[in-house]
Amino acid sequence: MSSINVKLRVWRQAGPDVAGKLVDYALTTDSHASFLEMLDQLNRELVNKGEDAIEFDSDCREGICGMCGLVINGVAHGPSDTTTCQLHMRSYKEGDTIAIEPWQATAFPVIKDLVVDRSSFDRIQAAGGYVSVGTGSAPDANAIPIGKAVANEAMDYAQCIGCGACVAACPNASASLFVGAKISQLALMPQGQVERKERALGMVEQMDKEGFGPCSNHGECEAVCPKSIPIKVIANMKREWLKASLT
């Protein structure tokens, strides 16, 4: 165990329609603490002093649910290879300043402090990110033959946990990587063929309606994606959308 002193600059915003600002805190924490444990510790100190705790999201704290998500020193999920919950204080040096901000996008309005409303992703998903087949009990393995390469590629795209880092990192606040991953994944699967066209058109239309920006191919999304989803899925989405629009 070794302790580490950091200067924190945390976005505090009392509610959706009020202005927020960065507030400075000094904290002595443990270099083995996870980033979220560090925030838990800060909150304990704040509550003990009778101040309002900093609101932030998390759930699994093991990098699989997509709930956590903070912009740390200007980078979504900070220096973590995956999600914010997988970041540890050993990534920082004594005396470092760490600015912590919420995802900023019109389509992800801040609810409070670092918590944003990502239900726009749910509405995009509901606009076509599914297959309408009777599920019943699990089918026999290998009942539907799918080549290994295709299965692997679909699995790569299916790893998207919908955390929204792509939107947060995009200078245009575009949701193209998220939507591209969903469309690409299902377009590869036989089960996804029936609704293939409606899916591409529906999800893109909903993405625009929610107020996400256009894609300018900056590629920041790929760099911050905890699941390393490549911008190839965006090119796939464009083809799927064009094919569906033309026929």
Partner: peptide, 11 residues
């Protein structure tokens, strides 16, 4: 794209 992010990052 400007409308898609009206509240800007500080860092």
């Amino acid at each position: 794209k400007r409308a898609a992010r009206t509240s800007r990052y500080q860092v």
